[in-house]
Simulated scan of single mutants.
Amino acid sequence: MTVEKANAALDAVYSARDPREVSVAYAGWAATYDRETAELGYLLPFLIPAWVARYVQPGGGPLLDAGCGTGLSGPQLKALGYDDLAGLDLSEEMLGIAAGRDSYAELKQATLGERLPWPDGHFRAFFSTGVFTMGHAPAAGLRDLVRITKKGGHAIFTVRDQVFDSGGFQAVFDGLEAAGKWRPVEQSPWFRCYAVVEPEAQVRTFVFEVL
């Protein structure tokens, strides 16, 4: 039954037509999100700290969890020594749960794709998991994330296979590189983002250095 509810909730968020509909869908899912995504074997919030640890040393300035949701990555990163962690999400209800994890020094409600409420070069890196997917943040949202990341910092994020081409991600990647805003460092193979269900659901992790 939990898996059925989780799949129904996924259908609702994936089919959202704008940020308001995404926010409404997550407001209704926030209270059971952690348990239900665990039933699906959702890996990304627990896997992304491996890429963060590969490129970003603990200490040295704030790190942004862009689209943090209920903050599942926060305790993992805190355990690894990242004690200056900020989070943003468009859902007030999801942020309320993230606040209870005692892992984030700062949480703000904001929408990827719009101008974000931090100055240029504020973060030493950002990471984002499961956000660049169907019905969620546009590829163009990467531009303002790069703006608020300092030179020499890193952009670490996943993109769902079903939106990579249709969402124009490669064009945004190429445009930022041509403008001298970042350079590619790593891209993973496509891999499953759910360990239990949806074997066809694939993502790829991308890493860029901000210039």
Rank of each mutant, 00 (worst) to 15 (best):
V22A: 03
V22K: 04
S15C: 14
Y42G: 14
A66F: 09
V24M: 11
A12G: 03
G141Q: 07
P119L: 09
F126D: 03
N7C: 11
G74D: 08
A6V: 10
A98G: 05
Y33Q: 13
F169A: 11
L64T: 02
D102R: 05
L47V: 15
L142K: 05
G60Y: 08
Q57S: 13
A110C: 02
L107E: 02
A6S: 12
T32I: 15
W29Y: 14
A137Y: 14
A31K: 15
L43D: 03
A179I: 02
G130T: 00
A137R: 07
R20M: 11
F157C: 05
T133I: 09
K181G: 12
N7W: 14
S188M: 01
Y14H: 15
P119Y: 08
W29L: 02
S73H: 13
L43G: 00
L107Q: 02
G71I: 11
M94P: 04
E106Q: 14
A98E: 05
G180T: 05
A27P: 01
A140D: 14
L72M: 12
F123P: 00
S128L: 06
V197E: 14
L63T: 03
A155T: 04
A140R: 15
P117D: 01
R101K: 15
A137V: 10
G59F: 04
A9K: 15
S91K: 12
V185I: 15
R147W: 06
A155E: 01
L43R: 14
G167N: 08
W118G: 09
Y26R: 13
P62W: 10
T111G: 01
T70P: 03
Q57W: 06
V3T: 13
A178G: 09
S73Q: 06
K5M: 04
A31F: 05
R17D: 00
L80S: 09
M1P: 08
A178I: 10
G167Q: 12
C193H: 07
Q76M: 13
A140P: 09
Q187D: 12
D102T: 04
G167V: 07
H136C: 02
V210N: 05
T133M: 07
E106H: 14
L64N: 00
F46P: 02
V52P: 12
Q76F: 14
T2W: 10
L211S: 06
H122Q: 06
E209H: 01
